[in-house]
Amino acid sequence: MAGLELLSDQGFRIDGRRPHELRKIQCRLGVFNQADGSAYIEQGNTKVLAAVYGPHEIRGSRSKVLHDKVLVNCQYSMATFSTGERKRRPRGDRKSQEMTMHLQQTFDAAIQTSLYPRSQIDIFVEVLQSDGGNYCASVNASTLALIDAGIALRDYVCACSSSFVNDTPLTDINYLEESSGSPEIIAATLPKSEQIVFLEMNGRLHEDNLSRVTDMAVKGCKDIHDILDQVVRDHVSEVSTVHGWEN
């Protein structure tokens, strides 16, 4: 993009971060009473709400019942006011359908699905404000919501994006960096075992640089994991102190 310097000579990005720095993450568990689990996350200016219902009996057609595992059902949607341009976004449009599929695949890999045969888990994700990294924020919010719902996971699922500018990999890219035409890699991982459960690449990137950029994304996932883990620990300690469960 002409006139837009993604990485200055001093090594700063447009929003003042260094290449390896994440945006500020703030999150909260248990934001809804009605849902079995819920979470809210802010990654920079990207704000996402997630709600989890279940495991419960399969609603709708009986043919969807899986006899040995749980059916993971996701719904991704973006609020009308989430982007710079106000636009009505019907749920079934192609972009959100694709995102829904991706989320479903990601969580099918992370939830211990065989523990809940014949049942269904619903994950509803709503993007309230979008500033790049919608998938990443959605995955992170859903993970927190699943933990809040007490659903058995193999590990946290953390997602992070990365890009490649001026021979330098950038982590957790925002909307400006995303739309500048530089390559983008999105990875969702199980940070403790370093397994990648989802990987997506947009744009063109030379093969030689691939591993560096991927490593940057995986490193970002680990950093995000540390932040989320702290939030979960604080939440659990706080609630169980009130319960009087500590002894």
Binding site: D36, G150, I151
Partner: peptide, 24 residues
């Protein structure tokens, strides 16, 4: 042995459980 939910570890003799804060 890994934990799959967030909670407090409960140990009864040789059996280890983790009880989440809320579930169904």
């Amino acid at each position: 042995l890994y934990a799959s939910v967030a909670g407090v570890v409960e140990r009864v003799n040789k059996l280890i459980c983790v009880k989440p804060l809320k579930t169904r």
